[in-house]
Computed example of a mutant assay.
Amino acid sequence: MSNPIRFGVLGGAQFALNHMARAIHEAEGAEFTALATSSMAKAAPFQAFCPGLKVFTDYDAMLASDEIDAVYIPLPNHMHVEWSLKALAAGKHVLCEKPIAMKAAEIDALIAKRDETGLLAAEAFMIVHHPQWARVKEMLAAGEIGDLIRVDVAFSFDNPDLDNIRNKPGTGGGAMGDIGVYAIGSVRFATGQEPEAITSANITYENGVDVTSAFTARFAGFDYSAYVSMRMSPFQEVRFHGRRGVITVKTPFNAGTYGSAEVQIRAANGVTRIETFPTVRQYVVQVENFVHSARDGADYPWSLENARGTQAVIDAVFDADQG
């Protein structure tokens, strides 16, 4: 059996505790080896499910360790590029939370460092690792709903806590960075197309961050409409409307927590079939795909170039806002 990829987690973020650190611990071929945090109180719940976990009180010390092969970075958004570059320079593979950068141009330095080192560097865009999105992509490519005419995306939750980093401009907060990446990246992934133009954008700000954004775009073959919000009741759905049918992804982003992974395909004659994916754990699959790519050279489904493409669209939405 090949040696496991030994992961260090950079920071004791709640998301890492609840999702990604556990996924690393459970994924085949991965080993949750170390955590870097200055707070032993934050380290304790990680050690509870991973006995023997090594804790570093200094980020740089963990990066310098020979016991670490890869680093998962769940730090606040504005720190992603800096610490991804430091990890690559230290000879570690990098899996960094989204958005991996605050501007598309910032990703160029990561691409250059990845190419220089030959290491794997990727944004943790977990949905592309879920088989429901592979199926949607396959069905669209096969023309199962005929010519695609329109795509509609909705993603919202309610987070009024101004102490949360998502509501702080200094930490790269805002709805577009946090969940706009899903509204845009999922459609780019599924269709393989890029928007030709942002045709409208309306962004609402509170406390210096964007909290609700509604925007439209024109792709080569279809119209696109989306809204994302941190001030609305939780909801998520993606709908692909074609000439001969409609594909609806009922839990497109938080499969297993918001709801069950389910893809509905309704034909023009009203006949509907449903494909479900009840046992898939997308965070675990993401880690296993990362391991196969870093260790075995397998293709990885979401490159830095893919992440840059999504961030470029986000940049364009901000530029198009008329507010």
Rank of each mutant, 00 (worst) to 15 (best):
S229K: 04
R244W: 04
A134W: 05
L75G: 03
A90I: 05
V280P: 02
M139E: 15
Y283T: 09
I100Q: 09
R218Y: 05
V280Y: 05
N77G: 06
G245Y: 01
D161W: 07
P160F: 02
D69I: 00
Y72N: 14
M230F: 13
A255Q: 13
G29T: 09
F125V: 10
G185C: 12
S303T: 15
R218S: 14
G242P: 03
G12W: 01
T57M: 15
R295Y: 08
A316C: 07
V249I: 10
Q311H: 11
L63I: 04
M230V: 04
T204Y: 06
V238S: 07
S2Y: 08
G185I: 11
L162K: 15
I184Y: 04
E196P: 02
T276V: 13
S225R: 07
L304Y: 05
A220M: 00
E116S: 07
Y182W: 08
A320V: 00
A268H: 11
A36D: 03
Q132K: 11
G143V: 10
H25T: 01
D296T: 04
S2C: 05
F46S: 03
A27Q: 02
Q286F: 13
F155Y: 08
I100C: 11
A36W: 04
R281P: 02
Q47T: 13
S200N: 13
F7N: 00
E116V: 08
R135I: 03
V94H: 07
D210E: 14
I265G: 06
A30Y: 08
G323M: 11
V246F: 01
F253S: 09
I149V: 15
L35C: 04
F56D: 02
I198T: 05
Y224S: 01
E196Q: 15
S84M: 12
H130R: 02
F49T: 05
G52R: 01
S213I: 14
G208P: 11
I184E: 07
Y72G: 00
A43I: 09
E67S: 14
W133P: 03
